[in-house]
Design a binder for these strands. Sequence first.
DNA 1: TTGCAAATGTGAGGATTTATCACATTTGCA
DNA 2: TGCAAATGTGATAAATCCTCACATTTGCAA
Lengths: 213, 213
Amino acid sequence: MDGKTAAKPDQAAMASPRRAPSQQRSRERVERMLAAASALIAEQGSDAMRMGEVAERAGVSIGSLYQFFPDKRAIVWALAERYTAESQACIAAALKDVGDAEGLKRAFSELVDIYYRLFLAEPVMRDIWSGTQADKALRELELADSRANAEFLVAVLKRLRPAADPVQLETTAFLVWQMGEAAVRLAISVDRQEGDRLVAAYKRMALRELVGE
Amino acid sequence: MDGKTAAKPDQAAMASPRRAPSQQRSRERVERMLAAASALIAEQGSDAMRMGEVAERAGVSIGSLYQFFPDKRAIVWALAERYTAESQACIAAALKDVGDAEGLKRAFSELVDIYYRLFLAEPVMRDIWSGTQADKALRELELADSRANAEFLVAVLKRLRPAADPVQLETTAFLVWQMGEAAVRLAISVDRQEGDRLVAAYKRMALRELVGE
DNA sequence: TTGCAAATGTGAGGATTTATCACATTTGCA
DNA sequence: TGCAAATGTGATAAATCCTCACATTTGCAA
């Protein structure tokens, strides 16, 4: 009798739209949905975001919302995915041409600052990556992102220290990157002054590890 | 005053029992509720934990559950609070008698291992501290815990490096501690081998920072 | 242009879950 | 013993998520 009670499609594709918008009209509507969700998250946090409110603010019906997003988390995921794609491009660009230790120092420090400022300024990002851990799909996205970013760092390190053990470099880069995210998240949750100190301390620590000494 | 109301006066208290159990009977029932919640969290995660199920498994009515816990999060908070109290005592003890750099190295390394193993073995702890960020009360508990633990570390550092800037030590200890938590959380979310490498790398990094080279 | 299938749009309502409340029972104690 | 406070109960109000049967619009082949 259950019929469709089996609503547990929890495998892959956690986030692809239930249906991809193929017409211009629907593509614009999906944009409006995401914009509405983004605004609501900025105002109240993703947890308090209500699907009905998203639909209303986007000027669509609740049914339309679910036509393109399988569930509530998928909306948050879609926003998160945009942020990571954007920042990955930024990171790749910043590290691409690093050739020596001095260059790494400069580029890394710059990236950390950008990331810190981004978190300070973007409530949506803050919210999404704070709640990360609770959501399996988001956690995986973050891990994948972190690994990808670490790879850019590894590429640089391999150039600077060709003799070093690759596995070691890999581990170091991954750890340094994840800790950077942790440091920034910590920094924004305390007052600005202490936050600045924490970020500065992280930079020192990370660079000591990356460029040795 | 009554026996073990370890909770503080509930002004800001997000989570103190709606009503403190004063009779032996109710104290036992509250224990059963917490035990049931703990088991359910271990099985399915705190998000999937249902209040009705907690009540049923504890052998009490849903009403009784709400008599002692104002809401669902309060149950998770109560469990989290126990863990932090326990671990804080453990940490304080381990760092209490550290007198030199060698001792710090040994004690710190030991603590990280304990923490790592704890997270590997305790699904409840893993769940609680993964979802931390999403819940304001839990986030505050974690920050307070981290600060408290950092204090123990600061006490040691002041003994080892009396000339250092206290604010600097404070910042370093706090950061190192938070990163330890981040490192362990990262380590348990990847395969065991990589996790071990990450924890080892963290230890090296942290100790280099703490005992300076 | 016309007709039609696919894409898209809608919102009432099913299903689930949290939390409350009025009332019943038990306990501690004067 | 009697009674007030503590405790116990579960139907049910309230809040949300998400589905579904049906309506409308669009793209395009004939």
